[in-house]
Each structure stands twice: as structure tokens, then as C-alpha cells.
Simulated assay, not measured.
Amino acid sequence: MKIILVIEDESAVLTNILEILECGGFKAIGAENGQIGVQLAKENLPNLILCDIMMPVLDGYGVLNELRQDPTTATIPLIFLTAKAEAQDLREGMNLGADDYLTKPFRRKDLLEAVNTRLAKQAAVMQQYDRERQRAEGLQSKMLELEELTNTKEGLLMKLIEDLRNPLSKINLAIHMLKNMPAGASRDRYLEILQEEFNREISLIEQVSDLQELLTVDNFKLLRQFNLLGGNLNDLPPQKNE
């Protein structure tokens, strides 16, 4: 049930408005002056405020000014109730952020139409806000996903390089050991095979940078699916700062 706060210093008018609102299906709260109205607005956070302009203690402009300065009440729509419809009064309220006006005396129909229209506009604004918020959250999620993918690709490349370097060191060691063996066909053949393997590994390392363009999300998942990559993301070495 929508909550409507009515701030009106004339008790008969206040009672009448509260009755109309309750019959219209709203929960109505009354305040007899602006100071009490501001307090009730902060305590109840109504969906809409109907506020008289000319009041003791704190007038309608003061009420609107205080509500707009508080983040918890700044977006609550407010309709001024006034017996004065001069353009200057209307402009002052609009400059402060009033949403609408009702000139007293008004009919029951006019009051309910103004309230329902303003609530509908507020609902449309909130829906638009929710759509934009969801869109912003979606974009933020995509950015995080891209950042994670970039880190994954960098980590994967580093791991590939590390995996390639490990056999290189062993191959190089074997070549040095064979070089110390007596000359012969067997030694020369082993050296030839090892040198070819060594050169092949060197070539792979030089081409690792080209793999980055191929490391899309789908390709990475495919490699893991067929167990062509050892370990998992948690095993990847941390990215080094250049």
C-alpha cells in the first residue's frame, strides 16, 4: 500500500484530505506543520508528499528545501497545496524541486488524479533507473570478465613458456654431455637428434606470442576439455609486472 504524507496546518482540510486518500486506497499520514512533516517524512519515507505552502514554524518551501538536502528523502515526489496560484509562487516552488501543484479548494477527483499521476511518473522513473542500473552492472560484469580473460591469457602464455623451457634445459645438458663422448656415428646421430629437438623448442618459444590471438574463451575451454592443458587456472603463475 502506497504511503502518502499530508502536511497541512488547517485541521479541517487535513482531515478531509486524509479521508479522501484512505478511501482511494492509500495509507495516509498527517502532520500539522512543516517541522513535524519533515520528521515524519524521514521516519516513514512516504511514496508521495502533499504539502501546504503557507504554514507556521516551517513553510512549504522550507520543507521542500530540507527534504531535498537529505539523500533519504531527496527523491520523494512532492505536490504543493496552495490557495495562491500566482506565477511567482509557482516558479519559486519549481525552482526548489516541487513536482506539481494543487490549488485549494480542489475536488476529490482532482486530488486523486494528481496523486495517481505523480505516482505513475515516479514508478516510470524508477523503472528507467533500474534498467540503467542493470545495464551498468552488466557492463561492469563484462569488464571484469575481460580483465579476467586477459589475466588468464597472460598467465597461460607464461605457463606455456615455462613448460617449453623445462625440456630445453635438459636437452641442452644432454648435448653438452654427448659432446664429451668419443667421436662416432652413434654420438653424432644423438647430437643431431638433440640439436633438432632443441631448435624445434626454440622455434616454439619464439611463436608463443602468436598464440595470444588464438586464446579466446571458447578455445581455452576446448583445450581444457581435451586435457591439452595441464593444471588449472589456479596453477597459473602470477602475472609479472613489466
Results as ranks from 00 to 15, higher is better:
residue 109 K to P: 02
residue 241 N to W: 14
residue 162 E to W: 13
residue 228 L to R: 11
residue 6 V to K: 03
residue 15 T to W: 03
residue 169 S to G: 06
residue 42 K to L: 15
residue 19 E to Q: 14
residue 215 L to D: 09
residue 31 A to T: 05
residue 139 L to D: 09
residue 37 G to W: 03
residue 236 L to T: 03
residue 160 L to K: 08
residue 150 T to M: 14
residue 197 E to D: 12
residue 61 Y to K: 00
residue 166 N to I: 11
residue 123 A to V: 08
residue 7 I to N: 03
residue 58 L to H: 03
residue 197 E to A: 15
residue 82 T to V: 12
residue 91 R to T: 13
residue 154 E to D: 12
residue 67 L to Y: 02
residue 61 Y to G: 02
residue 59 D to I: 00
residue 190 Y to E: 12
residue 88 Q to W: 07
residue 3 I to T: 03
residue 23 C to W: 10
residue 144 L to W: 08
residue 34 G to R: 04
residue 181 M to A: 12
residue 59 D to H: 03
residue 139 L to C: 05
residue 199 N to L: 13
residue 56 P to C: 01
residue 221 K to D: 09
residue 226 F to W: 14
residue 110 D to M: 09
residue 117 T to C: 11
residue 11 S to N: 12
residue 242 E to A: 13
residue 194 L to F: 08
residue 135 R to L: 08
residue 130 D to W: 07
residue 126 M to N: 08
residue 189 R to S: 10
residue 184 G to C: 08
residue 197 E to S: 11
residue 61 Y to F: 15
residue 75 T to G: 04
residue 160 L to W: 06
residue 174 A to T: 00
residue 144 L to D: 10
residue 134 Q to W: 04
residue 43 E to T: 06
residue 82 T to R: 07
residue 214 L to D: 11
residue 180 N to P: 01
residue 103 T to F: 07
residue 52 D to Y: 03
residue 54 M to A: 10
residue 184 G to Y: 14
residue 157 L to R: 04
residue 159 K to H: 14
residue 6 V to G: 00
residue 51 C to D: 02
residue 69 Q to S: 14
residue 231 G to V: 12
residue 143 M to V: 12
residue 118 R to W: 03
residue 145 E to H: 11
residue 102 L to R: 07
residue 237 P to D: 06
residue 1 M to E: 04
residue 63 V to R: 01
residue 214 L to E: 10
